[in-house]
Every structure is written in structure tokens, then in C-alpha cells.
């Protein structure tokens, strides 16, 4: 298996748009970055900055921030990504006709390694992190995080609800699970791909289905699902305030990695959640 920097096709499939549902994590341990990128795209109509051409490939520039309120650093990279023919290593898009998440991830790798290069070591992203810090890197905004332990499930749900309007989050929001079952105060079992230990998720909003209950709507950076808990997951159509694409409805389908989790399970299985503010 031989990987090299290659251009697999079109960076964008449907105009110069970057929808929240497209970033899918690869084999690197950067779920914190992919979850943050999806949350950022959920809140903002992200547009690429086509900044030039090196004679063979288009160049894109991305603004990234070392910490909140710091000046933006502009990282310019080409559309070449780390591939083995058509096989991806890192991030890819849920739409096989495009690959802009891989270009964004390459820019993030260059940023994290302080390298002004078009060929950064992608292994710099094979490192743990925190999705709120990744949100800071993407937005430069002030981070806030809330730990679930010590709060009731109702209190956690209320804190999330306070940052929603029309069921949809009003700020880019993420969450993360406990490092292991032993680290969780409640008895939990991480035995399906919807609830993975030490993993990062995007929070899209809240769901109060007609049948009752209070749920947190999550997106798994895996971008696909194969299983879910026996209880505590709501399905169906979720109505929400318009997202960055103007859509107001979403089918809660574990097959897309998007699901609504009962607030009690969210409280027990997730260590914390966080967001970046407006300042």
C-alpha cells in the first residue's frame, strides 16, 4: 500500500459549499477536529477561499486560530491530499464525488505542526485533543464547557436548550464521552458505534418528540452507523430552525450517524459538552 499526495477529482461536487453532513473522519484520531468542523458548518455557511493555482492544482486558504481572540493565521494548501490511488487515509466526504474535508484537514495538519508546507505529516493529527479546542482553532471564539457530572440530566438538557432556538443550536457545540466505562460515574457500556468511549460528537440541537421525552440531537464524526442502544434513541423527522443551507427538517437516521439520544443517556455516557461563544 503506497500513499502519496494526489488529486483524486473535484474538491466540491455541488458548488462551493461545505455542508455540515459531509465531513467524515478517517483512520486518524482527530474526531475532535471532524466533530468541530461539522458543528461549525452547521452554524455557518462556510465557503472556501480559492486563493490561487500552482500550475497544476488550485490552492485554498483557511483561517485558523491558535487560541481564542488571537489573530487568524492563514494557511494555504493545494487540493492534493494523502491517498493510495482512490483510497483515503484521513478525512473524506460523505459525498464520494467531492473531498473538501480532506483539504481542510490538511490545512489543519499544517497549522498544528507549525509547518508552512503543502505536504504536512498527517500523523500530527493522529493525536488526541478536545473538540472545544478544535472549535477555538476553527473560529477564534471564546470557549465554554460544561461537565455533566454533578448536574442532573434535566440541568444538562436545560443548559443545552438555552443555546438553542427552534430546536437548533445557536452556537457551534460539541460533546465528548468518558475515557472508559470505569471513568464514568454511572454504570455505562460502550458497546455500539453510536456510543463510543473517548469520542467526540457534534451537537445539532434538541428534540422533544410527540411521544414524549427530551433528546439531544448528535452527529457522529464516523458519518455512518451500524448499531445503537436498545433504548433511548428517537427516530423520525426532526424539525428545526433553518440551518446554513436553509433546510428545516432532518431525518434522524443512525445510518447517517445522526441520532437523537435521550437526555438521561446523554448525561450518563457523555463527560461534557462545550461550545464557542460569540466574542
Amino acid at each position: 500500500m503506497t500513499f502519496a499526495w494526489q488529486k483524486p477529482g473535484g474538491v466540491f461536487s455541488n458548488g462551493l459549499t461545505m455542508p455540515f453532513s459531509r465531513p467524515v473522519q478517517g483512520v486518524l484520531k482527530d474526531c475532535h477536529f471532524i466533530a468541530a468542523l461539522s458543528s461549525y458548518a452547521w452554524m455557518s455557511k462556510l465557503r472556501p477561499n480559492l486563493s490561487g493555482n500552482d500550475g497544476e492544482c488550485d490552492l485554498y486558504s483557511f483561517s485558523l486560530f491558535s487560541e481564542s481572540r488571537s489573530p487568524a493565521q492563514t494557511v494555504e494548501v493545494s487540493e492534493r491530499i494523502w491517498l493510495n490511488n482512490s483510497q483515503y487515509y484521513g478525512a473524506r466526504s460523505s459525498d464520494p464525488q467531492e473531498y473538501w474535508p480532506a483539504v481542510y484537514e490538511k490545512a489543519y495538519a499544517a497549522f498544528r505542526s507549525d509547518q508552512i508546507t503543502d505536504t504536512p505529516s498527517m500523523k500530527v493529527l493522529d493525536a488526541t485533543g478536545n473538540p472545544v479546542m478544535s472549535l477555538v482553532h476553527l473560529t477564534g471564539k471564546t470557549p465554554v464547557f460544561v461537565t455533566n457530572a454533578g448536574l442532573t440530566a434535566e440541568m444538562v438538557f436545560t443548559r443545552i436548550k438555552q443555546k438553542t432556538q427552534g430546536n437548533k443550536t445557536t452556537v457551534p457545540m460539541v460533546a465528548w464521552t468518558y475515557e472508559s466505562e470505569n471513568a464514568a460515574p454511572a454504570q455505562v457500556i460502550y458497546d455500539n458505534d453510536a456510543l463510543v468511549a473517548n469520542h467526540s460528537y457534534s451537537i445539532l440541537g434538541i428534540f422533544n418528540p410527540p411521544a414524549g421525552g427530551h433528546y439531544v440531537v448528535l452527529r457522529n464524526s464516523f458519518g455512518i452507523g451500524a448499531g445503537e442502544p436498545d433504548e433511548g434513541v428517537a427516530h423520525g423527522e426532526w424539525s428545526h430552525a433553518a440551518d446554513s443551507s436553509g433546510s428545516t427538517r432532518l431525518n434522524l437516521d443512525i445510518a447517517d450517524g445522526i441520532f437523537a439520544l435521550d437526555m438521561n443517556l446523554f448525561h450518563d455516557y457523555f463527560e461534557a459538552f462545550g461550545y464557542v461563544g460569540l466574542h
Partner: peptide, 24 residues
């Protein structure tokens, strides 16, 4: 933010499977 845990990270098993099979 000093007490925010920065040891979070797992691999995508679906991507691992594709790497193993060397195809989408």
C-alpha cells in the same frame, strides 16, 4: 480551560475497514 480534558480521540472503524480492504 485548564481542566478541559485533551486526551479525546478514537479512530473511525468504518475507515479502518476501508483501509483494510483498500477500497471504498
Amino acid at each position: 480551560m485548564d481542566d478541559m480534558r485533551c486526551t479525546i480521540g478514537v479512530r473511525n472503524p468504518f475507515a479502518l475497514a476501508e483501509l483494510k480492504e483498500n477500497r471504498r
